[in-house]
Nucleic acid binder design. Sequence first.
DNA 1: ATCATAATAT
DNA 2: GATATTATGA
Length: 299
Amino acid sequence: MREEDSNWFSRWEEELPSPDELIPLSQSLITPDLALAFDIRNPNHSPLNHPPPPSPSSALHPPPPPQPSFAEFAADSGDLGSEAAGDEPARTLKRPRLVWTPQLHKRFVDAVAHLGIKNAVPKTIMQLMSVDGLTRENVASHLQKYRLYLKRMQGLSGGANGGSGGAGLGPSSDPATDHLFASSPVPPHFLHPGRANSDHFLPFVPALQHHQQQQMVAAAVGHPHLQSQYHRPQMGHYGSSPNSQFEHPFLGRQTQQPMHRMGGTPVHNQAPSSYLEDLESANGNGGRKVLTLFPTGDD
DNA sequence: ATCATAATAT
DNA sequence: GATATTATGA
């Protein structure tokens, strides 16, 4: 894991805004750990996505000056520094908006699928997902939108076509209608009301925690644009395409993406057919993983 | 639990 | 300024 540490670290450095952007102001006021622990954040910016904290390793690996951790944090937290003690952040903690990453959504869909539509209610879904920090409200909200999406799909696939010039394409996703949902395959029985929906399959068994996922989900809360950094390497090019159109099972692949030759290092993209999958199947263990929204100090 | 609407982020 | 996504209230 040392390698990973150094890896992200180097990248972390690269992503730094710029020396000019750094405002030393807050650093003296609040330590990163503290800020993280207390979930101190600005409405617009969220520090929750803290990258792997290098603190422990510093002893072993004399790292280059690690200070910029809150470059972004400090960048706009002017009010924090200047306000002083008008309020107690710790008391009035509001969670950052939950960002539903494809992985998270995948898990969501998975849970719903296994539960069956009948039992697929926010509470149960939340429980099965076993995502620490995830609230019932979060799931409920998402579920609402997801149902809307399913309904839309049923309408398009099952019955009268709107008559739009669209060819016989499967139930596609409008760009504006759903970005996230297109990324995860919808279990068939969802679209087939009246068909036997089985409460079969395994009940998820909440179990061990994996650091990687913790990081992932943690990153999912807060900065979406930063979030992309975490996704890209994991799922390759599927994650965020400017086109917003992920892969379509029904449509043949249009063309290979024109790749830029990077300085004499031709990249062999030889896994174009793999769906994004990170959760569930990759589990050698029979148990279930627990995602967590917040970095547990002891992981 | 679900739906509608407001708030917020992009 | 518009759109998309999530949170909150009914």
